[in-house]
Design a protein around this nucleic acid. Structure first.
Lengths: 256, 256
DNA sequence: CGCGATTTGTGCACGTCTTCACAAGCGCCT
DNA sequence: AGGCGCTTGTGAAGACGTGCACAAATCGCG
């Protein structure tokens, strides 16, 4: 919406950290760019063009440039982007400079897997506590952390300056857990339970649901089957195994 | 933009596909509606208004009506939607009438959790096989299924008429697994590995990534922190660390 | 020093999604 | 039968996201 940028006009320099309000779609893609950039940095690249980076992140190059342009001008025309600098800027925008404490509630099947997931530490997050309502699970040690009872949530929140809550409980318990998280000041929740959470304004909830993803795939599978069963649509859509690898991935962001 | 083929007698396939052609955004929400509808059916409701259903699914009522209108007119003005009928229609559109076989590749931390996930059977899916490349894992029994070696994929595909592949391997192995899945005819992949998959046209890939979700939440958390630090709230906004929260405990701001 | 090769940043047009607002339709009650 | 309240279905408008195409900027080299 705001495109009133005056080129070259020094005017009022933004002394403030200037939080640009990025489009949500852009925010959702930044983590993917970040991972691609880390891969590049690990393999010794110092600069990268929008074409290369966009390929590594699975998006269109124009989209990538527009996304990055929202953060400011951190590229060099004719050269590309400085990998290290861009990593720094994206991490800064995403707020990954501070390591955020995550509480994982629900140490069942999925909770165990999440507790053992090594993607936390590597990406700016720290599991501050494992919590469960089942007394028989309290005390169990997982990945170096001891499971505590959910009633200790308030204590944990203070001790660890809790930032994010992850709900991996059955659906029936999820709302109650969400209420408890909100009550101790958590304003960001990642919900793995198959249900809709109702939270106060200002609290962000993101949802991950395996069944939903499968059902969406099922729809497309169903549609593809219907199309191949019927003739006269477009050209020869008969090939069961397409030969051409155009590297066209239609991967989509999830949620909202 | 829908040029139709022969209306009337459709040769084979029987099910008279009305050729959905639904907006992607609508497809992504249908599973949520479906779950809400199942909950309603279980609690004895026979009809439901768009207002109620949309609240249960966590969306706006106008959006829900427009979504459902794409399926056809299955509501009754002044009354609402027939729950059972709507369930049937949505399941039909999503292709859930046939139970699809899912192959789960990668029986590590996450794979174990997914193998034990009970949301498969309840929602029209069936784990047809557990596969892994690690010989030390082959033979292990999980939830009544024996882990087989990935080299048996071709056999499994034929035996079970495989429809969907789920990748729960480390990122380094994901692309190779994807290639193998595609090679045996799988055209829908759900990828939990933190990497971009390159697949031929016609193959759908959906991605689920815990780290990305957390980073998106981190961004919003970061932004919220910046906002509360900046505007004059009147109180002492000097605290560098948001230790004291206003604690907007007023639950039930059932969102938008 | 200027020129060409290269790549970013962005104006613009287009398509998709969301939201509002309201007419059309349905059932119930009098 | 007729009116009234309720709810669906949808046209229209606006917000949002995407992709093209190109000018502006930068580097390397002769």
């Amino acid at each position: 919406m705001s495109q009133h940028r005056h080129p070259g006009a020094p005017g009022r320099a933004g002394a403030v950290p200037a939080l640009p309000d990025l489009p949500e779609a852009t925010v959702a893609r930044l983590p993917e760019y970040l991972r691609a950039l880390h891969n590049l940095a690990d393999t010794g690249h110092e600069t990268v063009s929008s074409e290369e980076l966009s390929a590594a992140a699975g998006v269109n190059s124009a989209k990538l440039r527009k996304d990055l342009s929202h953060l400011g001008s951190y590229g060099t025309r004719g050269v590309g982007y400085d990998v290290a600098l861009l990593i720094e800027q994206i991490e800064n925008v995403l707020g990954l400079t501070q390591r955020r404490a995550v509480a994982l509630v629900g140490v069942g099947n999925l909770g165990h897997a999440l507790a053992g997931y090594d993607g936390f530490a590597g990406r700016g997050f720290r599991i501050a506590a494992l919590l469960d309502a089942d007394p028989s699970r309290v005390g169990e040690e997982i990945n170096g952390l001891v499971v505590r009872h959910i009633d200790e949530l308030a204590t944990v929140a203070v001790e660890e300056s809790l930032a994010i809550g992850v709900i991996a409980t059955p659906a029936a318990a999820a709302q109650q857990v969400a209420d408890q998280l909100v009550a101790v000041g958590v304003t960001s929740i990642l919900n793995f339970a198959p249900c809709v959470l109702s939270v106060p304004e200002g609290v962000d909830v993101r949802k991950v649901d395996l069944a939903i993803e499968l059902q969406i795939l099922s729809f497309h599978e169903h549609r593809k089957a219907s199309l191949t069963a019927l003739p006269a649509t477009g050209g020869s859509a008969l090939t069961a195994l397409p030969g051409g690898f155009a590297a066209t991935d239609t991967q989509e962001a999830i949620g909202t």
